[in-house]
Design a protein around this nucleic acid. Structure first.
Ligand SMILES: [Mn+2]
Ligand SMILES: [Mn+2]
Ligand SMILES: [Zn+2]
Ligand SMILES: [Zn+2]
Lengths: 143, 143
DNA sequence: AAGTTAATTGAAATAGGTTATCAATTTCAA
DNA sequence: TTGAAATTGATAACCTATTTCAATTAACTT
C-alpha cells in the first residue's frame, strides 16, 4: 500500500484522458515529489539518482511538467531555476521568501485574492492564474 | 538639453557613490530605456543597433543591471526573458498580463499592498520587495 | 499469452538567455 | 597631461531546459 493514493488516482485519471501511460518512472517521481513542499528538477534528480542511477534528468523535467498539466504541481520561476510546487493537497498558495537565508513560508489570503479579482474586472481581464511573492527578511535574519 | 534630467541626475548620483563612470553608452541606453514602460535587453539592443552598430549586447545587460541597482529599473522574469521595468517616474506597480496576445496593463492597489504587509507581519517578515502578476485574458481575447 | 502499436525513456545534442573573460579603450581625478 | 581604474565589445562559457532519436516499455487486440 503506497501512500499518496489520492494523488496517484488523480494522475491516473489525467493519464487516461490523454492516452498516456503509467510507468515505473512516473510512479517513482510522484512518490518523491509528494514528500516535498517544493523542489527543483535538479534536486529531485539527485535524490532519485541514489535509488535509480539510470533515471534521466530529461525524464524528471518531462514528468514534472506532466504533473503541472495534471494539476498536481505548479511551476514557479525563482531566481535562475524553476521550483515545482506541490499543490496536490495544499491547493493554491503564495510565498514569503527570505532573501537572506532562503526560508520560504507559504500562505493564503482570501482578501488579497478577492482584490485581485476586482482589479482584473476593472480592467476587463479574466484571471486564469497569478503569482504573488513577497521578498524580505525573516525574523531570524533581521538582526 | 536632454529630457530625463531627473533620471540622469539619479544615475549620476549612484555612479558617484560607487566609483563608476558616466559613459557615452550609459547615456545612450538610459535615453532609450526611459522611453519605454518595460523592455527586454534584446529589444533594446535591436533598437540601439540602428543608431550605434558597435554597441554590444553585453553592455546592454550590464547597464540594465546597473539601472536596477540605481533604482531606475526593476527586473522581472516573464516567460523565458527578463523584462526591465521603468520605475523611474512611475514608481512601483504590478501587472495584468494577457496570456493570449501579450498585452500588459500596469496597476497599483494600495489595499493589496497593505494586506501584503499584514501577511508579512503575521509571519515575522519584513518585506523589501514583492511581485504580483495576474495572468489571464484581456477583454479582446475572451471571445 | 503473444502480437501490435504508440507512448516513453535515457543519453546526448541543442537551444536560449545571461554572465564571464580579456585585451583595448575610455573616463576622470590628480 | 598623465596614470590608475573602470568600461567596452567580441566571444566564449555557463546554466537550465527542451529536443532528438533509437531502443524499450505499456497497454490494447487478437
Ligand atoms: Mn509552496
Ligand atoms: Mn510595468
Ligand atoms: Zn531568513
Ligand atoms: Zn489579449
Amino acid at each position: 500500500m503506497s501512500k499518496h493514493q489520492k494523488e496517484m488516482a488523480l494522475l491516473k485519471e489525467h493519464l487516461g484522458k490523454h492516452q498516456l501511460k503509467y510507468t515505473r518512472q512516473r510512479e517513482l517521481i510522484l512518490d518523491a515529489f509528494l514528500k516535498q513542499e517544493h523542489i527543483t528538477a535538479e534536486e529531485l534528480y539527485h535524490q532519485l539518482s541514489r535509488k535509480d542511477p539510470h533515471l534521466g534528468l530529461a525524464t524528471i523535467y518531462r514528468t514534472l511538467n506532466l504533473f503541472c498539466e495534471a494539476g498536481l504541481a505548479q511551476a514557479r520561476h525563482f531566481g535562475t531555476q524553476t521550483q515545482y510546487d506541490n499543490v496536490s493537497h495544499k491547493g493554491h498558495h503564495d510565498h514569503l521568501i527570505c532573501t537572506e537565508c532562503g526560508k520560504i513560508v507559504e500562505f493564503e489570503n482570501c482578501d488579497i485574492e478577492r482584490l485581485q479579482e476586482e482589479v482584473a474586472t476593472r480592467n476587463g481581464f479574466i484571471i486564469k492564474t497569478h503569482r504573488l511573492e513577497l521578498y524580505g527578511l525573516c525574523s531570524r535574519c533581521q538582526h
